Amino acid sequence: MWQVKDYESEIETEAARLAELAGDVSVPVPTCPGWTLAELITHVGQTHRWAVHVLRNQVQERIWSRQVPSGLAEGQSGDAAWLLSGAGELLRTLRETDPQLPVWTWGPDRRASWWPPRMLFELVIHRADAELALGLDPVIPAALAADGIEELLHNLPSATWVTRPLAELGVEGATIHLHANDADGEWTITQGPAGAVEWARGHAKGDAAVQGPVSDLLLMLYGRRSPDALTVYGDRALLQRWLAAAAF
C-alpha cells in the first residue's frame, strides 16, 4: 500500500529531528492548544513506551498510554534524552517483533505490523508541530507525506473520536478530492453513514477538491495547515466543516 520500506530507519531519523528541536521546552505549541514543547515531547515519548508495552507483553485488550509507566517522576516532563531513550527502546522492540504477531491496536489491523507506520507518522506530525512552534516551515519528503495520507485514511474509520463528530455533520455521500501537484498522488474521500469514511486512489471529481504539495495536503488533514494555503475548488464550506470535525 505505502512506499516507505524501512519504518525503523525513518522513526530513528524523525526522533532525532524532534530531539534537536527540544531546546527551550517552555515554547507554546499553537497547533496543540494548551501544550508547550515539554508537553509535546512528553506525549511522544509516552506514546513510544506505550507501543513497547503493547508489543513486548502481547497485549490483547485496550490499554491507554497513560497506564504505561513513563519513567518520569510525578509532574516531571520529558526532555530530549528521555525522548531518545524511549525511541531507542521502540526501535529495538519493532526490529525484534514478528510483524504478524496478534496484538491490540486501535486501528483496523490487529497485528504488530500496524505499529511501525503509526509510530512514524505520530513522530512526523509532532515534529512538524515543534517546527511550527519555533517559526520553521516543516519539510516532509513527498513519498513520506503520501504514505502519511494513506496511513491516516486507512485508520480514520477506526478512530471513534473522529467518526462521532463526522456523523453529526449530516453530509453522508459528500466527497473531498485531494490532488498532489508535486507527486503522483490523488485520493477521494467519501463520507459514509454514521461517520464512516471511505477512500480511494485516483482522479475523480469531488464536492470539494484541494490541490497543492503533498506535504501540505498531509498537514491540512491533520489540522496543521489551513486549506487557505492551498488551491480549493468547489464547496469550501464543506471542506472546512469536514476538516474541523476530522481533527486528529
Score class of each variant (00 low, 15 high):
residue 63 I to K: 03
residue 11 I to R: 01
residue 46 Q to A: 15
residue 55 L to S: 00
residue 105 T to Q: 12
residue 24 D to S: 11
residue 102 P to S: 03
residue 72 L to G: 09
residue 152 L to P: 06
residue 30 P to R: 05
residue 127 R to M: 00
residue 101 L to G: 05
residue 85 S to N: 13
residue 51 A to I: 04
residue 124 V to P: 00
residue 16 A to F: 02
residue 114 W to Q: 14
residue 149 I to H: 07
residue 47 T to K: 13
residue 83 L to F: 02
residue 63 I to N: 02
residue 33 P to I: 07
residue 113 S to Y: 00
residue 104 W to G: 14
residue 69 P to G: 11
residue 140 I to E: 05
residue 103 V to E: 14
residue 114 W to Y: 15
residue 105 T to V: 11
residue 30 P to L: 08
residue 135 G to H: 03
residue 90 L to G: 06
residue 73 A to P: 02
residue 146 A to L: 04
residue 117 P to V: 07
residue 112 A to G: 13
residue 96 E to G: 01
residue 118 R to V: 08
residue 107 G to V: 00
residue 142 A to P: 02
residue 61 E to R: 15
residue 111 R to K: 14
residue 118 R to L: 06
residue 123 L to A: 14
residue 74 E to T: 12
residue 78 G to N: 03
residue 115 W to M: 03
residue 129 D to F: 03
residue 77 S to W: 08
residue 115 W to P: 04
residue 22 A to L: 15
residue 24 D to R: 12
residue 64 W to V: 00
residue 52 V to F: 05
residue 99 P to A: 10
residue 77 S to Y: 11
residue 58 Q to R: 15
residue 20 E to F: 02
residue 125 I to T: 10
residue 30 P to D: 05
residue 110 R to S: 14
residue 34 G to C: 09
residue 54 V to G: 00
residue 111 R to L: 13
residue 57 N to F: 01
residue 140 I to N: 10
residue 144 L to I: 12
residue 75 G to E: 10
residue 43 H to N: 05
residue 140 I to M: 09
residue 132 L to W: 08
residue 42 T to P: 08
residue 28 P to C: 06
residue 21 L to N: 00
residue 141 P to G: 01
residue 50 W to P: 09
residue 49 R to Y: 02
residue 71 G to S: 00
residue 124 V to R: 00
residue 110 R to G: 07
residue 59 V to M: 08
residue 12 E to F: 05
residue 106 W to I: 13
residue 112 A to L: 13
residue 59 V to N: 04
residue 130 A to G: 09
residue 65 S to K: 09
residue 126 H to F: 02
residue 142 A to V: 03
residue 75 G to T: 05
residue 21 L to D: 01
residue 76 Q to A: 14
residue 86 G to E: 09
residue 80 A to T: 04
residue 122 E to R: 10
residue 60 Q to T: 15
residue 131 E to A: 10
residue 65 S to P: 05
residue 31 T to R: 04
residue 58 Q to H: 12
residue 138 P to N: 07
residue 135 G to C: 04
residue 89 E to F: 00
residue 54 V to L: 03
residue 89 E to G: 14
residue 57 N to T: 12
residue 13 T to H: 13
residue 14 E to V: 09
residue 32 C to T: 12
residue 111 R to A: 14
residue 70 S to E: 03
residue 115 W to I: 06
residue 28 P to K: 05
residue 14 E to K: 08
residue 115 W to E: 06
residue 88 G to W: 01
residue 74 E to M: 07
residue 81 A to S: 14
residue 57 N to L: 02
residue 37 L to T: 10
residue 50 W to T: 08
residue 124 V to Y: 01
residue 105 T to K: 12
residue 27 V to F: 09
residue 106 W to K: 11
residue 57 N to R: 06
residue 58 Q to M: 08
residue 61 E to Q: 15
residue 120 L to A: 07
residue 19 A to Y: 01
residue 23 G to A: 05
residue 34 G to M: 05
residue 66 R to Y: 14
